[in-house]
Design a binder for these strands. Structure first.
Lengths: 106, 106
DNA sequence: ACTATATTTCGAATATTGTCGAAATATCTC
DNA sequence: GAGATATTTCGACAATATTCGAAATATAGT
């Protein structure tokens, strides 16, 4: 994980609409969510959602799988883990900060 | 930590220049770094750096403290902890993913 | 008050993003 | 292959971001 890649993923998550999309996918768990479902849930134009999904997919944060006529989207947990790991590493290089011990949930 | 706030902080970190700045500050630890030092280290116009610093400060990720004629910048660790906590919470609501156990550093 | 140093604000140019509707594509069913 | 449903691509527009140099501001020392 280099800094460029991290910045791209952070930028991808740093848009309210995309973060909403990503959160919905995370909450959906392993089952994932069809694009159409996401659209109804979030209430934006299908083309706009498609655009955002594309960006999330490009950065590796989301994956898609065809299921008959619908596309199922899923959060890519390992990617998120790596990104969070990058942040935590940066954060804890020289300073002791409690991130991984439950202090962070505040 | 609401989703809007999280998105703003992620967006702030989601720019290569700002992430570089933030990383330098994190690495500098509690001592922090003067603006001028950051500028030399990163090699951008002072005005550009000032602009990015302002954005990082607005989101609460960075703090500044005057020291004679120079301004010392510091990473705000608690803010980072909260943000990482938000991501981890979202990530682990319905799916077991190892973020806080050392698996994430890959 | 004047000078020197450090940083920010201003103004402007270019690039990127977010959004939409309409049209195109893909996949199944009949 | 015609029709139905789901999703993406295209074209466009307004809004925002990134970057710079020049000028303005703040702080300390003489």
């Amino acid at each position: 994980m280099n800094i460029e890649q991290a910045a791209k993923q952070l930028e991808a998550l740093g848009n309210p609409t995309r973060l909403q999309v990503y959160r919905a996918l995370v909450r959906a768990g392993d089952e994932g969510l069809p694009v159409g479902h996401l659209q109804e849930k979030i209430g934006i134009a299908a083309s706009t959602l498609s655009h955002h999904l594309h960006r999330l997919i490009l950065t590796g944060l989301v994956t898609q799988e065809r299921q008959v006529t619908t596309l199922i989207c899923r959060a890519n947990y390992p990617a998120m883990s790596t990104l969070v790991g990058f942040l935590v590493e940066e954060c804890c290089v020289d300073a002791g900060c409690a991130v991984a011990d439950g202090e962070a949930a505040a």
